[in-house]
């Protein structure tokens, strides 16, 4: 048995012409770990994952997946990984069972088809053609095809997009059971609760750079955990971050009297994540000039935060 990490990435770079999609990213994923890659759309997480899967060439840096360079992927290597891609649009003229049976035959040591069917909750759809399934059901077929080969390492690129809350929870159970069997899992997701539920560690990527990595509960700097005071005045919703929320609120009330919609919030994972991304984008905006700054992150915080 080799003791090398499941995934090792050093100074990974990927550029398309003048655009740098991934810019010097380094991390390691241990065997058996569930690892989440977080980041806004276009941050470079799918590019990173597709380089690990062997789908894309890299422009620079070192990558090792299950002890091999994905650039020189062999069939033996492919038999040890499972991939759930972000989007699929196949014609789907086969039934769920036919598709799973066919893909199982491609692997040397597949899981039994019936076991996988029930694991993804599609037993009663086994004889249905894939094109007749709903979006969420098709996504479950994708997941089933990703795990049918009994992979040591499973890549999941936004696996639960289009799932209803119950399906998402069932999917989490499936991922936990795979993890208990020792499968290493690399997950990209937009859903921070998903990352918090499933992953041992997470990395945040923004603007092609890795801006933080660690156990999900420890992401962000001490600054990111600074509480937020929110209220509404005649100008609309306001917010202020302060390490002394009590004093701030006292001053506020002394100055303006009772204010509407007052709340003090300890930043949630989502807030911390958005803070990280905002900081990274502001920094990038400063080096690139104002044109480089995307949507207003303050907006993002206040709308997202309103749910928590």
């Amino acid at each position: 048995m080799t003791l090398s990490p499941a995934v090792r990435v050093q100074e990974l770079r990927k550029s398309y012409g003048h655009f740098t999609a991934v810019d010097g990213v380094s991390f390691e994923i241990e065997r058996g770990e569930t690892f989440a890659l977080l980041g806004p759309n276009g941050a470079g997480k799918s590019t990173t994952v597709e380089i690990l899967e062997g789908y894309r060439e890299r422009s620079g840096g070192e990558v090792e997946v299950l002890g091999a360079d994905p650039r020189h992927a062999t069939l033996e290597w492919k038999a040890r990984i499972g991939i759930v891609l972000q989007q699929t649009g196949e014609s789907g003229n086969v039934t769920v069972r036919e598709q799973l049976t066919h893909f199982a035959a491609l692997y040397p040591n597949p899981r039994p088809v019936d076991e996988v069917l029930s694991a993804v909750g599609l037993d009663d759809k086994a004889k249905t053609r894939i094109k007749a399934l709903s979006g969420g059901q098709r996504r479950r077929v994708d997941v089933a095809l990703g795990v049918i080969g009994r992979p040591e390492l499973l890549f999941l690129d936004e696996p639960t997009t289009g799932f209803d809350p119950e399906a998402r929870r069932q999917f989490w159970e499936l991922i936990r059971s795979l993890s208990r069997e020792g499968t290493t899992i690399v997950l990209t997701t937009h859903y921070l609760d998903e990352a918090a539920q499933l992953s041992d560690r997470a990395a945040v990527i923004a603007g092609g750079r890795l801006i933080d990595i660690g156990p999900v509960g420890e992401l962000g700097t001490a600054d990111a955990r600074v509480p937020i005071v929110r209220w509404r005045d005649s100008g609309g919703p306001r917010q202020e971050r302060t390490t002394e929320p009590g004093r701030f609120v006292a001053d506020l009330v002394a100055r303006e009297g009772e204010v509407a919609e007052l709340e003090v919030i300890r930043p949630s994972l989502e807030d911390i994540y958005l803070g990280l991304v905002e900081a990274a984008e502001t920094a990038a905006g400063e080096t690139r000039g104002p044109a480089g700054k995307p949507d207003d992150p303050i907006d993002a915080i206040s709308t997202k935060g309103a749910r928590s």
Partner: peptide, 12 residues
């Protein structure tokens, strides 16, 4: 439609 991409990720 992604059929080839999916197959590319398998040991076919």
């Amino acid at each position: 439609d992604g059929t080839l991409k999916r197959l590319a990720g398998t040991p076919l």
